[in-house]
Computed example of a mutant assay.
Amino acid sequence: MEQLNLIYGKHAIEEFAQKHPKMIRKIWVKDFKYIEKFTNLEEFGIKVIKSNDEQLNKMFYEEVNHQGIVAEVKEYNYVPFAQALENLKDKSTAIVLLLDQIHDSHNFGAILRSASLLGIEQVVILDRKQVSVNSTVVKTSAGTVYDLSISKVSNLNNAIREFQQHGFWVYSTNINKHSVDIRKVDFAQKTVLVIGNEQKGVSDLITKNSDMNIFIPSTKIIDSFNASVAAAIAMFEIANKIGKLD
């Protein structure tokens, strides 16, 4: 069971079934009344299995509040980078999130959940040295990963150059002598936000190739924000400033 992509909870699964019914393989329920609102189960061939709390609990390594309902969803399909660029070319306002080697599945899932809530059009990750969409990412994102367009590339710097050629400005979160307080930045309508690795941050070459380095102010009690927290704060600031939250 540990290899399955699982989501859980009444509201999360009901919403997922409405938006992505083709992506559901099976649903385990403690009580069939939990799926009374699901009108498309038969249409999409979704198998429903009666279970009890003990069986549902065993599906997870840790204790979760599954509320008596768990669903298995299909593997995530990445969008080819060329197609992602094509989808973005006619947009006058867009935010792209570029992740520089995020290693922790929980961080990645949390980042994707915030990205979905804040209207991020595209996510770009490396095809190596970066966690992919796995069952932990699916669970941590509450299934919102399936609402997002994610592309894998072999070289993030090449991707940055292509975005710049398509009219995007690239902002890397990086604390250095050239960094600008995020509150003082007038973000471009077409923005690429770069979030760095949990330990090393944004790489030197990506920092150099970005149009601007930005930082999130803090009390500096510890070194920096967690990667997922920094991503959420920065995405909100950008989305708010360019009018995506109006």
Rank of each mutant, 00 (worst) to 15 (best):
K244D: 12
K74P: 01
K10A: 07
H66P: 03
V194H: 03
R25L: 04
K30S: 04
F225V: 04
K30W: 00
I221M: 09
F32K: 09
L41D: 03
V131N: 12
V133M: 14
E62C: 02
H20K: 07
I27E: 00
Y146E: 15
V137D: 12
G167L: 09
N57F: 05
I13E: 05
A188N: 15
I95R: 09
I214H: 07
Y171S: 11
V48L: 01
I35S: 03
Q165W: 06
M23K: 05
S132R: 13
G196N: 07
V202A: 02
S132E: 13
V64R: 05
D186I: 07
F108R: 09
V153T: 13
S92Q: 13
E63D: 02
K10M: 03
N107P: 06
F44N: 06
M212G: 02
G9A: 05
D186Y: 07
D31C: 06
N5Y: 13
G201D: 03
Y171K: 14
I120L: 12
K37I: 00
M1F: 03
N40P: 00
F81D: 04
L88P: 06
S218M: 06
K89Y: 04
E54D: 00
S151A: 13
S151R: 14
N5G: 04
S51R: 02
V145M: 09
S92V: 03
V131A: 13
T173G: 15
S105F: 06
N57S: 08
N5R: 13
W28G: 08
N174R: 11
A17F: 01
T144G: 15
M23C: 01
N176C: 08
S105L: 10
R25S: 05
T191K: 04
I150R: 09
K208S: 01
D211Q: 09
Y146W: 09
Y171C: 12
Q130K: 12
V153N: 14
E36V: 01
F236R: 11
V194T: 02
V137H: 11
G167I: 13
E15S: 13
A234W: 02
G243Q: 12
L245S: 11
M23Y: 01
L193T: 06
S135P: 08
D211G: 09
V123H: 12
I95S: 12
D53F: 02
W169S: 10
N213C: 08
I214W: 05
A159V: 10
E14D: 08
G243H: 11
I95M: 15
F236L: 08
K244F: 09
Q165I: 03
E54W: 02
V229I: 13
N157C: 15
A231N: 09
F163R: 08
V48D: 00
I206S: 05
L193Y: 04
K50M: 00
S114T: 10
E237K: 12
E86F: 06
E198R: 05
F168D: 15
M23V: 02
I222P: 11
G167M: 14
F168K: 14
I150K: 11
K208F: 10
A115Q: 10
S210Q: 01
